[in-house]
């Protein structure tokens, strides 16, 4: 099985789907000839032709509106929004149209579209190339929101998203494109080489949407994370010395509530980690769900570790970024109770 980084795995998923399904086509800003600013669509136009993979005008609203119209016709477009920070001009299309077609037309029309977008920080991108907007999509009834944390899942989840008959926002943790990153920014860069999660089958396979992965089993606390934070959590758990169970949610809508509840009932403690700012973040929803379903199993208050409630700051990236030390502290606080 070849080793792939996340860019290669995503590229492979698109390549497999272009070859397999003539209804799949790909477009976005710089996705055609150039192959995308992060190279995820590299070589696809040359291999599959101009009609299957092309460049779009700088018009996020136009890109998603066009994709929805194609989806309503019966195609399965995969649109790229260059950075998740730029998805907001398309927000109306996602919320008022893509997410609502099936419901309001009583099933006459639907939009089987996938919207790929790199998200998250850790790359010194400042406030317009670093944000994590997953919670605002999770709040929208009718949208699915998927976030992989490694190359194997990235390929399988992207194929599952493309084959799904509902609109999927597929957020790619850009700091994980080239290697796992655990938040320890002062250490040497790691690549995906040698990581078992980077062994990616060449053929078609799916990782089902709505199924979390238990990244590490543990007895004394549960850590809920997704995307880049899965790796930060693993480092934080190691630093804390706590025997914590680490759950990679993989998709936040649909959410694998059963795996979460089973784990917290077993461990009695829960720490939620996300990079997005804390207030109104998806951690709030997770905390509410956990206390509703696990209250009598909890030995300590649920903790949230997240980005501060500020815009994503350029010079203060590592002060903002919720690194392993903050998670370790939260775990230690839990264990004191």
């Amino acid at each position: 099985m070849p080793a792939m980084n996340m860019i290669q795995a995503l590229n492979h998923a698109l390549d497999v789907m272009l070859a397999r399904d003539p209804d799949v086509l790909i477009f976005g800003e710089d996705t055609g000839y150039f192959g995308g600013v992060f190279r995820v669509t590299d070589g696809l136009q040359a291999k599959h032709g101009l009609k299957r993979c092309f460049d779009a005008p700088i018009s996020e609203g136009g890109i998603i509106a066009t994709a929805i119209g194609m989806g309503a016709y019966g195609l399965r477009p995969v649109a790229e929004i260059q950075f998740a920070d730029y998805i907001l001009p398309a927000f109306d299309q996602l919320v008022s149209e893509a997410a609502r077609l099936r419901y309001r037309s009583a099933g006459e029309f639907w939009a089987p579209i996938t919207v790929r977008s790199p998200y998250g920080g850790g790359i010194f991108g400042g406030q317009t190339h670093s944000q994590s907007p997953e919670a605002i999509f999770a709040h929208i009834t009718g949208l699915k929101t998927v976030i992989p944390s490694n190359p194997y899942d990235a390929k399988g989840l992207l194929i599952a998203a493309i084959e799904d008959d509902d609109p999927v926002v597929f957020l790619e943790p850009k700091r994980l494109y080239n290697g796992p990153f655990d938040g320890r920014h002062d250490q040497a860069l790691k690549t995906w080489a040698g990581d078992p999660r980077a062994e990616v089958p060449e053929e078609h396979y799916t990782v089902p949407l709505g199924k979390a992965a238990i990244e590490r089993e543990g007895a004394d606390a549960t850590v809920l994370a997704y995307g880049t934070m899965v790796h930060v959590a693993a480092a934080g758990i190691a630093e804390s010395g706590v025997d914590a169970e680490l759950i990679d949610l993989r998709s936040i809508v649909p959410l694998d509530i059963e795996t979460i509840v089973a784990s917290v009932r077993k461990t009695g403690r829960c720490v939620i980690l996300h990079e997005a700012s804390r207030f109104g973040g998806f951690g709030g929803e997770l905390a509410a769900l956990v206390q509703e379903r696990c209250f009598y199993h909890l030995k300590s208050p649920i903790e949230r570790v997240a980005g501060w409630d500020t815009p994503y700051p350029h010079a203060f990236e590592w002060d903002y970024f919720p690194g392993p030390a903050r998670l370790a502290k939260a775990l230690a606080r839990c264990m004191e109770r």
Partner: peptide, 9 residues
Amino acid sequence: GHAVGWAMA
């Protein structure tokens, strides 16, 4: 814009 996407399809 859906009309344009539909027509392109």
